[in-house]
Nucleic acid binder design. Structure first.
Lengths: 335, 335
DNA sequence: TTGAAAGCGCTAACAT
DNA sequence: ATGTTAGCGCTTTCAA
């Protein structure tokens, strides 16, 4: 293992100068710096992170906690966070809580002293436990209200209301007037916002009947389960809680001979990569998830670098975009 | 921050005894141990990893390097690795190389001194560079030949030949005789094995015509691009390099009115969760990817724990299973 | 069975 | 501008 001592010996300076050259290059004379850096390169010296962490009290590592790595939504989020933390010289450790609040709490507690900060995406912890879990921790919340009881942390969310609104208006513009919404988990933060946006849009648009189909699991099976019920009130278009639900609907409908978009239009949420996988491809409304992850990392690192503890935290809201693909068209009557 | 000193003070012993209680409980008197553990619990003491790493020369962290986190194949692999390393008390850091060999090499070099071992999944590095990258590193290779020039490392692979074989035999059993194969990247390890298995099976079965359709990108777009060509020689069934390619085929065929499995049967590879998303659901052959990830972690930790450097490395092969769903059926002529 | 003490590699305060 | 040195929290000899 190559240490500061080796580099110091090779370049004829003290170990302090080696460290300084790497951490505060401007405090070192140019020719000294050159010699040190040359030695660093020649020896392929890499500072030992454990030693550095111990001394500085910072680890250079941040954590990203997600409920499920396999979920395409979080996969993209992670991808973005990964890229952006790498670019800024931080390590990123990803924790998969397998959707269990207890695992989440325990992992955060275990990580506490080993990381400089933490990003909680779609935390499954109720407000009180969340506040307790992140107390005294530099932390950024994704998909969670900034007001979450007692937690002062930067927050980054998506304007789900606006997304719901866009979905309805898009369908309305194509001529749809009977629009169904297949909801996600009743207690979900996104679910309530999306529904709100959808309701608002429906109410403010002439002659729109909004048919609410209830709450379903936020995956393809949920969509399959909802397939029949969604058709009960004869909508000409359906909005699904997310892309996976939409694919479930699509699958079941296709089995019973219903064609999309000829017989019925379909809109998903989140705009994950699975929207490109189906046939027809899925019109979907969502934010750029990689950018979402990148933004969270940036906010966190900002927090970490400005050592002072602030009393107020920024709250950033991303605006989703509706991506029109092949699953939406004018209702049959208009042809 | 709670340290050994706090615990020592609270339980009336020296810091050495605290450390010993945690690392070698058997070397401490029972009542002492009880007192120390009580103090640990009361104070919620967690050993500082940086300090421990520095002293012991091991970090308690392993790395898993994958080409693309968003790929459902690797997502499942990660999920398994995550669970198994957590269970064994190790931290896991996941690196996404975004399919770039250079990034892979650089990340491995950077990680070198900060981890106890590394798992490379589907490395994009050519043999020579791979050998250089992992020299002197405890490492496990996933989806790579054990003989990879000069690297002595445990390997875990899937018996892709057997998978190819199963796919053909399944279709044969249903009555198919003209079977097409839409290949993946020509230089890919899995691709050549799968093709080999398919060829062998086709050759050993009475009256089977194998139609090789060439090499395509291993994603849905690759499948879309291959859709027409795959039909050129009038197969009654098609095997796709992987599930994503299969979904691409499915999508394009569906647009031109071809029905699966009524008009043509379709088999995917890898059995990822997307096989459940389509309509019809995709018959697919693959190993349990989570188990795959778990196994890799186990092999690595075994290597780490038995400190001696061994000259021979285990080579574990998983057998894939064919999961029959709705995309395969007897060819039309047999109805 | 327990304790005292050295030291892992690095950084930062202080001295020159 | 550079060097000397203390010490981060822990583990592990060595001695008692």
């Amino acid at each position: 293992m190559v240490t500061v001592h080796d580099v110091a010996a090779r370049s004829g300076v003290s170990i302090a100068t080696v460290s300084r050259t790497l951490r505060e290059p401007h405090r070192v004379a140019e020719d000294t710096r050159d010699r040190v850096l040359a030695a660093v390169r020649e020896l392929d010296y890499r500072p030992n992170r454990a030693a550095s962490s111990l001394r500085r009290g910072r680890t250079g590592v941040i954590a990203l906690v997600v409920p499920d790595i396999e979920n395409p939504y979080f996969a993209s989020l992670i991808k973005g966070a990964q890229a952006s933390s790498r670019a800024r010289g931080y390590g990123l450790v990803v924790i998969d809580t397998t959707e269990q609040a207890d695992v989440e709490a325990e992992e955060v507690a275990a990580l506490r002293s080993q990381i400089d900060g933490i990003i909680l995406a779609s935390s499954r912890l109720p407000d009180a436990r969340l506040a307790e879990a992140v107390a005294g921790l530099r932390c950024v919340l994704i998909n969670r209200d900034p007001a979450a009881a007692g937690v002062v942390a930067p927050t980054v969310t998506i304007d789900e209301r606006s997304g719901g609104n866009d979905a309805v208006r898009h369908l309305y513009g194509q001529g749809h007037r009977r629009i169904a919404y297949v909801g996600g988990p009743a207690r979900s933060w996104s679910q309530s916002r999306r529904l709100e946006g959808i309701r608002n849009a429906a109410a403010s648009l002439e002659g729109v009947a909004l048919l609410e189909v209830g709450s379903f699991a936020p995956d393809a099976d949920g969509g399959r389960a909802a397939a029949e019920l969604a058709l009960a009130d004869r909508p000409t278009a359906v909005i699904a809680y997310n892309d996976l639900v939409a694919l479930g609907l699509l699958a079941r409908w296709s089995e019973r001979g219903l064609r999309v978009p000829e017989d019925i239009s379909l809109v998903g949420f989140d705009n994950t990569f699975v929207a490109e996988l189906s046939s027809p491809r899925l019109t979907s409304v969502g934010a750029d998830l990689r950018a979402f992850g990148e933004l969270a990392v940036e906010l966190l690192l900002e927090r970490i670098d400005s050592r002072e503890t602030v009393d107020e935290a920024p709250h950033r809201v991303l605006t989703p975009r509706l991506v029109v693909r092949d699953s939406t068209a004018a209702p049959r009557g208009l042809h």
